[in-house]
Amino acid sequence: MVSLLSIQDVTRVYRLHGKKIWALKEISLEISPNQTLGIAGESGSGKSTLARLLMGLEKPDQGKILYKGNDLAGMNKKTLRAFRRHLGVVFQQPQLSFDPRWTLERSIEEPLRFIAKTKKERRSLLVREAAAQVGLSEELLTMFPQQLSGGQLQRAAIARALIMKPELLILDEPTSALDISIQAQILNVLRELKNKLQMTFIVISHDLPALSYLADQMVIMRNGKVVESGTKDETLRRPQQEYTKMLLASAL
């Protein structure tokens, strides 16, 4: 199978007070189209650095990230923008991902206005379609972020990420900031989308059980390295590494 994303020997180093911090050390991963990849790791494992590199927000110090064979680092502003058109992102804190002065509808339709230059009537239709897809009731669209709960906002964030019908959706800790009963709702929304849409999902989380609900493939990261990777069942049922076993045993 041809990879959608190919991460080849990627290293990312940050410098803090003259000291080098190796956020990622020679990481290689292949991400196939229409698969869901779960990336698990604790703080400092490099999972969020990896997410930023995949979004093209940062460049690796060494190695390459290829999107359909094209190196992200070699892209100019224009081609990078074209790449991001096919990319949706959902962040951990839904409260921080919305402009407080905009209604939900205005926020969700922003990519259509800004990138696709879609006409007004069509935008309205697409926003309602996306809202229905994530179980966000239509009357909430006229509300402002401050009027909504974390779960409702996270649904809206997913709707916004889907509105351009991206090939790839990156979710960075999409349920960590939510209440337990709401986490379950969002996990079910994501699972339904994954089963319904022909799309690639990358889900990053420290919550192994939540990842296991969504992922086909799993990657376990620690200290900037991949310690274990494989299908979900292999990783959960027959973990090879002590660290993976420890993570599994720590799940409450």
């Binding site: 009963s181 709702q185 079910n188 919550d207 939540a210 609900y213 799940a251």
Partner: peptide, 24 residues
């Protein structure tokens, strides 16, 4: 009952996740 059924840890044993509709 609903809160216990919606715990993510249930997922490790392959159970489906039951959810409570609405928000607290």
């Amino acid at each position: 009952r609903a809160l216990l059924a919606s715990r993510p840890v249930n997922l490790l044993s392959g159970q489906t996740l039951k959810t409570i509709p609405g928000t607290p």
